[in-house]
Each structure stands twice: as C-alpha cells, then as structure tokens.
Amino acid sequence: MTTPPATPTRPQPPEDETSRPFWEATRTRRLLYQWCTVCDRPVFFPRDICPGCLGSTLEWRESSGRGTVYTFSNVHRPQMPNFALPAPYTVALIELAEGVRLMSNVVNCDPEQVRVGMAVKVTWERLDDGRHLPQFEPA
C-alpha cells in the first residue's frame, strides 16, 4: 500500500503589522515597496524604520512590477518533496526597476531559458487566504 502524493504546497508567508500593507495590496495584485523620504531611496523588505537613517520616514509606493533577473538557480533536488512547483523550478533574485531586490520564482518559462539580466514582469499566484504571492515571467 502506498501513500497518495501530498497536495503540492507552498510555505505560506507570515505577516505582521509592519508588512501588512504589502500583503493587503497583493489581494488586488499590487506590488508595494517602501521609500525613505529623507534618504530618497527605496527599501525592501518592509521595516518600521529606514535602514540608513533609522527615521520613521518610510512611505509605501507601488512598483511597476517590471525588473530583471539579478541571479537565479534552478532547483533540481528540492528540499520540500511536495513543493508547489515541479522540479526543476527557478528561484531568482529579481531587481525591480525601482531599485530593490527580492526573491521570487520565474514562471511561465523553461528553466533552461532563464538568464541573468532577463527582463521580467510580475504575475500573481493566489494564496489560500486570498493574498497573492508575487511571481515573475518573461516580459
């Protein structure tokens, strides 16, 4: 007797009061980042204070969702046996046009075709609780 394969899953991102505006915006498929109005620079991941001046001078801005692949790896041997994406899948660091870098997946693209510097745009995967997870696809 064999166990049926587990349903593919993703670790669900937790959130707290600091990051809540980011995750709430994903319900309507909007990608937010922070901007320090004193240092005049973007900030990611969300913080209560600017990692530069320590000021409570951060405002939320909406990203164009466009960027490039800074680097990536195609995971052939996943750690989680029932991870949402079938191996090999692409995990990448995406540099958004607004100047911040975040981890994500490149989807809707053969992993062998992903390149450093490739132009990508955001697409969304719905999470169980109605939030969405940012994913990226060739632009």
């Binding site: 959130e15 995971v75 996943p78 981890m103």
Partner: peptide, 13 residues
C-alpha cells in the same frame, strides 16, 4: 523571521 516571509515561500533549497 524575515526569511519565512520573504524567502521560504519560493522553495530555494
């Protein structure tokens, strides 16, 4: 843990 929020959902080993 910021990694749980900003990295772990993407399945990087």
């Amino acid at each position: 843990n910021p990694q749980a929020e900003w990295e772990m959902p993407y399945g990087l080993r």
